[in-house]
């Protein structure tokens, strides 16, 4: 409410920076990377996503929020076709274009797509191998085996994930010997080792304590200079803190998509307002 009052008393001569203008300015700077248009998605006979249209800009953090079962994770998993793993899942209508390539075209190489669109999962899932092997997993799949190249990638990825200093002396210990937050950052390092363009994060902090969460959020903020990040989160503070744009989903529909500040300060939809205020129901 106070936000509204403030906006009303703001003199018109002064550009209101909290409102729409910077958002528009931003989206002009960062061009659209992922373009979702009129997407309908089914699990068997259940329609999980209704007519979703959404443009995700490059090198920004876009957060998907909404109550459980609203379809936000489903949409995220459409972006690297992880939903293909579920037999009954199918895209019924609409397109998802990444750099103007429709990723649901039959001739798209899903393997290649997933190299370009990395993913970090809710539950940190390092392989029960050494830290080094976890990071080099993706490269080894591609046939890279030169030790010098692998060493270099391990260091670069671990530095990129702000984990290098903590693990550089025990690269050959099991990835599972790390703490929860470190494991999640290891998974992020593993994802950036294959040099993706987009990193999808499915509730990456939901199993972490606040300090570990803050570290991962810090990392997300650093990563966005190089990668486009899409993050699904239940934690509204997290969306507010680390995203540039926020999409609110409810019952498989996109209710509101705007600059994060707009979503959290003057959402235009009553449902969004109710959800971000924590009185949903």
């Amino acid at each position: 409410m106070s936000a509204h009052t403030l906006m009303e008393i703001t003199p018109t001569t002064f550009a209101p920076p909290i409102a729409d203008k910077p958002a528009q300015a931003d989206s002009e700077v960062h061009q659209t990377l992922i373009d979702i248009a009129n997407l309908d998605f089914f699990y068997g006979e259940t329609k999980a996503l209704h007519d979703i249209s959404l443009k995700i800009p490059e090198k920004e953090v876009t957060a998907f929020i909404g109550p459980s079962g609203c379809g936000k994770s489903t949409l995220l998993r459409c972006l690297n076709r992880m939903n293909d793993l579920i037999d009954i899942a199918r895209v019924d209508r609409g397109t998802i274009r990444i750099r103007d390539i429709d990723i649901y075209q039959p001739d798209v190489d899903v393997i290649e797509l997933r190299k370009r669109v990395g993913m970090v999962f809710q539950k940190s899932n390092p392989f029960p191998k050494s830290i080094y092997e976890n990071i080099t997993y993706g490269l080894r799949l591609q046939g890279v085996s030169a030790k010098s190249r692998l060493d270099e990638v391990v260091e670069r990825s671990l530095r990129g994930a702000a984990l290098w200093d903590e693990v550089k002396d025990r690269l050959h210990e099991s990835g599972l010997s790390l703490s929860g937050g470190q494991q999640q950052r290891l998974c992020i390092a593993r994802a950036i080792a294959v040099e993706p363009e987009i990193i999808l994060m499915d509730e990456p902090c939901s199993a972490l304590d606040p300090i570990a969460t803050a570290r991962v959020e810090e990392l997300i903020h650093e990563l966005k200079s190089k990668y486009t990040i899409v993050i699904v989160t239940h934690n509204m503070q997290q969306a507010a803190r680390c995203s540039d744009r926020t999409a609110f989903f409810y019952l498989g529909r996109l209710v509101e998509y705007a600059d994060t500040q707009t979503i959290f300060m003057k959402p235009s939809d009553a449902q969004t307002e109710a959800y971000v205020s924590g009185r949903f129901g």
Binding site: S2, L6, T10, F14, P17, A240, R241, Q261, F264, M265
Partner: peptide, 19 residues
């Protein structure tokens, strides 16, 4: 006057986004 507005905006932004 401008600084006051700026500070208010920053404050509200900070409160809404950074909790």
């Amino acid at each position: 006057d401008q600084l006051e507005i700026k500070i208010d905006e920053e404050a509200i932004r900070y409160m809404s986004l950074r909790s």
